[in-house]
Each structure stands twice: as structure tokens, then as C-alpha cells.
């Protein structure tokens, strides 16, 4: 926590501006610190080549590690009222490209 108000009194007469520097505290509501996460599906469907989809998880805002990868997912691409193509997981496991031919 940082407070600049003491300056106001040292100056004898206060200046609003000094108080503007105000008090800064960290703001960490529960929802930000919570371990809850969301699945991130990153990629584009390439109809005439290799399609790579990366699956990962969102990470806490204060984390510095790379985002956790989502392993062992079953991923399909489905044509509207048409066939279904399964994507396969490739190693190594941190980021998981899934191939579709």
C-alpha cells in the first residue's frame, strides 16, 4: 500500500492534487484469484490442407508459467449434416496439434 497523504500535511496547507496521488492498494477479488478456468480452442479449419487446433486452458492473471495444455481430448470436425472427422493428438504434449486430412 502506498499513501501520499502525508505530503499534504508536510506542505502545511493541503493541495488537492497531492491527495490525488491517493492511496493505491492491490485489488484482488476472489473471482480473479479463483482456480476456475476455461477451455481455449485455438485454430482455423483448413478445408484444403492440414488443420491444427491447439487446446489449452486459461490461466490465472498472476501466473507467469505458460498456459496449461489440455491433453487427451477427443476432437471432431463435423460437416453440416455430413461426415465427421476425428482429429488426432500429436506429441509432445504441451501444445497439441490435431491433424485433419
Amino acid at each position: 500500500m502506498r499513501c501520499f497523504l502525508h505530503l499534504l500535511y508536510r506542505a502545511g496547507l493541503g493541495a488537492v492534487l497531492l491527495t490525488l496521488a491517493g492511496c493505491i492498494d492491490t485489488f484482488e477479488p476472489e473471482v480473479i484469484a479463483s482456480a476456475e478456468n476455461y477451455l481455449v480452442v485455438d485454430g482455423t479449419i483448413n478445408s484444403s490442407g492440414v488443420t491444427t487446433i491447439r487446446l489449452s486452458r486459461t490461466d490465472n492473471l498472476i501466473s507467469t508459467a505458460p498456459p496449461p495444455a489440455e491433453a487427451k481430448a477427443a476432437v471432431f470436425i463435423e460437416e453440416e449434416a455430413g461426415p465427421r472427422y476425428a482429429l488426432t493428438e500429436t506429441a509432445p504434449a504441451l501444445i497439441l496439434p490435431l491433424l485433419w486430412r
Partner: peptide, 13 residues
């Protein structure tokens, strides 16, 4: 690399 939240109080005393 961290995203940190802060709150500023003007009349915090």
C-alpha cells in the same frame, strides 16, 4: 508477465 489489479482511493484517510 503478471496482470495485477489496483484500486486507487483518493480520500483514503
Amino acid at each position: 508477465g503478471q496482470i495485477k489489479g489496483y484500486q486507487l482511493a483518493i480520500f483514503g484517510q
